[in-house]
Design a protein around this nucleic acid. Structure first.
Lengths: 108, 108
DNA sequence: TTCATTCATCGCAAAAGTACGATAAAGGTG
DNA sequence: CACCTTTATCGTACTTTTGCGATGAATGAA
C-alpha cells in the first residue's frame, strides 16, 4: 500500500467510512453494548466481560473515544467510560440516511 | 496480533462488525453510492469514477460481494454489478436496531 | 512510606488491509 | 485466426490493525 488513498475521496465518504471502521471489530460492538447496559462503567468491569487482555481492551476503548462514540472521565486510578448519547444518535442518523439513499434505486 | 480473537465473540457481534468492516473504506462507500445512481453498472465505469487503479477497484468490489451488499453477474469480458437491495435493506435495519439499543440508556 | 489496585501507554510481533503493475481469462471485432 | 477490450487474479510491497506482556502513572490502603 504505497500510500493510503483515503484523502482522495470526499469528506462525507471518509467520515462515514471512519465511523464504520470504529464499529468494525466485535470487541468494540461488545463494549458499546456493555456500556449501554450500565449507567456507569469502569474499564475493569469491561475487561472482565471480554475475552481480551486489559491492554487490548484499553486500546479498543481508545478507538471508540477517538471516534467520539464514548466519553471517558479519568478519576484517579479508575476511569469512567460511558456512551456519548448525542454522537451515537447522530451516527445512527447518518447510517440511516446512507442506507435510505442506497435503497432509493434498484437495478438488474 | 498472535491470532484474531474475533471468534471469541458472539455471532451477532461478529456479523455486525463484519458488515461495518465492509463499509469501512471510502472507496467502498463511493462504489455503493455510484451503484445506487445507475441501474446497470460495469466495473469500468466505476473505475473511471474512482481515484484508484482497476485492480484495486476490483478488490473493493470483491469485498462488497463477499459481504453480500452487491451482486455481480459475469457476462463475458464485462461484469455487471448492482446493489443487493434486499440485503442492504436488512443491513440498514440491523444498524438501526443496534443504534436504537445503544440509545435506550444514558449514563454519567 | 510501602504496597496494592487500576488503567494507559510502550514496544514488539503477527495478521489483515490496501494498492499497484503484470498477467490471465473470456469474449468481441476485423 | 490474430488482436483488442474488459475484468479478475496473482505477486509484491507497504501500512494499519490487533494482541499481549511489561512498564509507568496515579490514587487509596495499611
Amino acid at each position: 500500500m504505497p500510500a493510503a488513498r483515503k484523502e482522495a475521496f470526499n469528506p462525507q465518504e471518509q467520515q462515514l467510512a471512519a465511523l464504520a471502521r470504529a464499529l468494525s471489530h466485535p470487541a468494540r460492538i461488545a463494549i458499546l453494548r456493555e456500556l449501554a447496559q450500565r449507567n456507569t462503567c469502569i474499564c475493569g468491569e469491561i475487561v472482565s466481560a471480554l475475552p481480551l487482555s486489559q491492554s487490548t481492551v484499553s486500546q479498543h476503548l481508545h478507538v471508540l473515544l477517538e471516534a467520539g462514540l464514548i466519553q471517558g472521565t479519568v478519576d484517579g486510578p479508575r476511569s469512567c467510560y460511558c456512551l456519548n448519547a448525542s454522537v451515537i444518535k447522530a451516527v445512527g442518523k447518518a447510517f440511516d440516511h446512507f442506507f435510505k439513499t442506497l435503497s432509493r434505486l434498484e437495478c438488474c
